[in-house]
Computed example of a mutant assay.
Amino acid sequence: MMYILMSFIMIMMICILLMLLSYIISNKKIMSREKMSPFECGFNPFNYSRMPFSLHFFMISILFLIFDIEIIIIIPLIITINQMNMFIWLISIFMIISILMIGLIHEWINGILEWSL
């Protein structure tokens, strides 16, 4: 019991020491209007609120969501590699990756990935 208590006290001391060290080392600056204002997706909160939104931001976010869902689909397949037939596993991985690659090539051809202002 004493060993656990001493370990807990040591961990707490290390945590407090690290927090104090980071507070001392951190580069504190005087807060300006820009730092104190909220930041929403590149918009200035003090401008007109009905500014047109660039569809390019929307398309990039959809692209991110698609590849994020791809990770959710592929990770369980990697975990089940030993439990499935290898041929069926390879076909399913190939189908998922080929669908994603076809979508990526389609977006590339349509110029969604080109960032021009």
Results as ranks from 00 to 15, higher is better:
Ser116Met: 08
Trp115Asp: 11
Thr80Asn: 11
Met10Phe: 12
Leu18Arg: 09
Lys29Arg: 14
Leu20Pro: 02
Met86Ile: 14
Gly42Thr: 00
Glu70Val: 05
Met101Pro: 03
Lys35Val: 11
Leu21Asn: 08
Phe39Gln: 14
Ile74His: 00
Arg50Ala: 09
Ile16Gly: 08
Ser92Asn: 04
Lys28Gly: 01
Phe94Val: 10
Asn82Leu: 08
Gly103Leu: 14
Ile69Glu: 10
Met2Leu: 14
Leu100Lys: 04
Phe57Thr: 05
Trp89Cys: 03
Trp89Gly: 00
Met86Lys: 13
Leu100Arg: 02
Ile62Pro: 01
Met84Val: 04
Ile66Thr: 04
Ile11Leu: 15
Met84Pro: 02
Ile102Leu: 13
Thr80Gly: 10
Met2Asp: 15
Ile62Ser: 04
Ile102Gly: 01
Lys28Ser: 10
Phe39Tyr: 12
Gly42Trp: 00
Met95Gln: 01
Phe94Arg: 06
Ile14Asp: 02
Leu18Gly: 08
Ile9Phe: 13
Met1Tyr: 12
Ser22Thr: 10
Asn110His: 11
Arg33His: 13
Ile105Asn: 05
Ile88Phe: 03
Ser37Phe: 07
Cys41Gly: 04
Phe67Ile: 02
Leu90Gly: 10
Ile88Thr: 07
Ile62Glu: 04
Gly42Cys: 01
Asn47Ile: 02
Leu17Tyr: 15
Lys35Met: 15
Met31Gly: 04
Ile60Gln: 07
Ile14Cys: 09
Glu34Trp: 06
Ile112Lys: 11
Ser54Asn: 10
Gly42His: 02
Lys35Trp: 10
Met59Val: 05
Phe64Thr: 03
Ile60Arg: 01
Cys15Gly: 12
Ile93Leu: 13
Phe53Gly: 03
Ser98Ile: 11
Pro52Lys: 07
Phe64Asp: 01
Arg50Phe: 06
Leu104Lys: 05
Leu20Met: 14
Glu107Asp: 13
Ser92Asp: 06
Pro76Ala: 03
Ile11Phe: 12
Cys41Asn: 15
Ile88Ala: 10
Ile105Val: 09
Ser98Gly: 01
Ser32Lys: 10
Arg33Glu: 15
Lys35Thr: 13
Ser98Glu: 08
Met2Glu: 15
Leu55Gln: 09
Leu21Tyr: 07
